[in-house]
Write a protein that binds this DNA or RNA. Structure first.
Length: 561
DNA sequence: TTAGGGTTAG
């Protein structure tokens, strides 16, 4: 009865053409393709509507809608479809496994793989599972499956090579590469990238030279390798030689400039990229935001933020948000930083580290600690970088007891091995609190690698406290570790000058000349209405220097004399 | 319709 009334009312309501009761094979094919494409482009609702309205469906239609659901973060929807679909095939199982991996559920993916009928498994099922496990760093199970799989193809070998290299076992990866029956450009790319990831740039370059057909992916890997070595000019040479560059390649060069502190080149390259008509993605924008961050171009950074909001319809990438949180903080706008942070839907460890570092740099100790607690309540486990921000915050103003407590908590409760920077933060706190002797004793118990930072902190403290004797000893220890440390010479010379020990000042300067040490001049800059104003110590070349000095005099930090 | 390599954030 109800079905009768439903259909009759729809007949009465609709003046449109009656819905066809079947589809031709070609129509079915096109409907299936449309569902897949809508699913891939984030239009799950439209995909589902089309699927629901289809008078007939085949397994391909079911697989397409199943994939569309997990593609749009609805893994449970995919699972329901899988249970109700009439004839699940190998592709249905494989798609579900892929969906589990894509939605952060590697255990479930493995469960489906192990429970699928053996007759149903094909080489893609094995490969999907192995590469997914590798992505989640479940190395041992991945390797066990690889050894167990009945017929390996070039994709299986490549997935395993990638896995071994990511695990840091690049020699084993190379061994597998040498033994694999057939190689293609992807396998070559995987091993070259593996060497690059492990910092073995020479090996990467040698293999690249031997590669039979050098494609864009391999060239991009080598560009990244050069940039990681700091050889941006070599990277640029390679980049300029590419005829048809894609966006990833542009992004690699761009972030190479950013990481090597060449903001001017980065911005020039970004403009060139825009001139090609290519549309920047979040990788591009992260590089630009970092550039703005490093040179204080807050207004331009805001424009990038607005552009990202507009082009993604507010679905901002989390890494880009993290970079923006840092940018606003470095630009002095901590409130914008915080506002943006709380609006990130899927905050990750880096997001929390970014906001904690922001408040740490702004000297807000209470906020740093309260954010740390909220982070834990949110189920995020802190890492060494989180603790670095906390320790750094507790040094200004110095809270010795807290600093030492957090330091031991980091080791005992969280199992994090302190790095040089952590020790340096504690030493810095001790120095700032005036406990210079205690700080020196503390350095004695530190690993050798960490001492460089620590002696620098002590030396700086000696300078502010005019502690000549300790300063001398700290500088000597630092210079034994790093004879070209210009900061050490300058600090020592300043300590002597402050104490009126001019003969010693002359000696230090002579030592600097002898060791050919040069002090890099320190610049500062600010951005006003899009113009950059650059300042150097003792520099009076600014067009409005008189006004500037007048203002500085008013606030008591300069004299026009 | 399912599987492998290159560019990210603190």
């Amino acid at each position: 009865m109800s079905s009768f009334s439903k259909s009759s009312s729809s007949v009465l309501r609709s003046s449109a053409k009656p819905r066809p009761r079947t589809l031709s094979p070609s129509e079915l094919f096109h409907h299936n393709r449309r569902i897949a494409s809508l699913g891939r482009t984030g239009q799950l609702h439209a995909a589902r509507q089309l699927f629901d309205e289809m008078p007939i469906r085949d397994t391909v239609s079911w697989n397409a809608i199943l994939t569309a659901h997990w593609h749009n973060s609805d893994l449970d929807g995919s699972k329901r479809l899988f249970q109700t679909m009439p004839h699940p095939n190998t592709v249905s199982w494989n798609s579900l496994i892929t969906g589990c991996f894509h939605n952060g559920r590697p255990q479930e993916a493995l469960h489906y793989f192990l429970n699928m009928p053996c007759s149903c498994r094909n080489v893609a099922s094995w490969n999907t599972t192995i590469s997914g496990l590798v992505r989640y760093e479940h190395w041992d199970i991945a390797e066990r499956l690889f050894l167990k799989m009945p017929a390996k193809n070039v994709i299986s070998y490549t997935a395993m090579i990638d896995g071994l290299a990511r695990r840091g076992e690049v020699d084993r990866a190379r061994n597998l590469f040498d033994r694999m029956p057939k190689r293609n450009t992807v396998s070559w790319g995987a091993i070259i990238s593996g060497y690059g990831e492990n910092g073995l740039f020479e090996e990467a370059r040698t293999l690249f030279n031997r590669m039979p057909e050098k494609n864009l992916v391999a060239i991009t890997t080598v560009i990244t390798g050069y940039c990681k070595q700091g050889r941006v000019d070599k990277a640029r040479e390679l980049f300029d030689g590419i005829q048809h560059k894609d966006l990833i390649c542009w992004n690699a060069m761009l972030s190479g400039y950013v990481h090597n502190d060449h903001p001017g080149e980065a911005l020039k390259l970004f403009i060139q990229l825009l001139e090609t008509g290519m549309k920047p993605d979040h990788y591009t924008l992260i590089a630009v935001v970092k550039t703005c961050s490093s040179v204080g171009l807050l207004q331009q950074g805001r424009l990038v933020h607005a552009y990202a909001i507009k082009t993604t319809n507010w679905h901002l990438n989390v890494s880009l948000c993290n970079a923006l949180v840092t940018m606003y903080s470095k630009g002095g706008c901590i409130s914008d930083s915080e506002l943006l942070f709380w609006n990130i839907h899927n905050k990750d460890l880096v997001s929390w580290n970014a906001i904690i570092a922001a408040f740490s740099e702004h000297g807000n100790q209470e906020k740093v600690v309260s954010l740390f607690n909220e982070m834990e309540e949110d189920g995020i486990t802190p890492d060494d970088i989180t603790f670095l921000s906390i320790l750094s915050a507790l040094g200004r103003p110095a809270k010795i007891k807290d600093s030492l407590n957090w330091f031991s908590l980091m080791i005992s409760k969280y199992g994090i091995q302190p790095k040089a920077e952590h020790y340096a933060s504690v030493v810095d706190a001790l120095c700032r609190a005036g406990h210079l002797e205690k700080a020196c004793k503390y350095v004695g118990g530190m690993p050798l690698k960490a001492r460089n930072f620590a002696w620098s902190a002590i030396l700086a403290a000696c300078q502010t406290n005019s502690h000549v004797e300790l300063g001398e000893s700290a500088a000597k220890k630092l210079l034994v570790l790093d004879s070209e440390n210009s900061g050490a010479y300058v600090a020592l010379s300043n300590i002597y000058a402050e104490a009126g020990m001019w003969r010693e000042v002359t000696k230090v300067r002579a030592m600097m000349r002898q060791n050919r040490v040069k002090k890099q001049p320190g610049y500062s800059w600010t951005e006003i209405s899009g113009n950059i104003h650059l300042f150097l110590v003792g520099d009076a070349s600014h067009s409005e220097i008189d006004k500037i000095l007048c203002e500085l005099e008013k606030i008591g930090i300069a004299s026009r004399a």
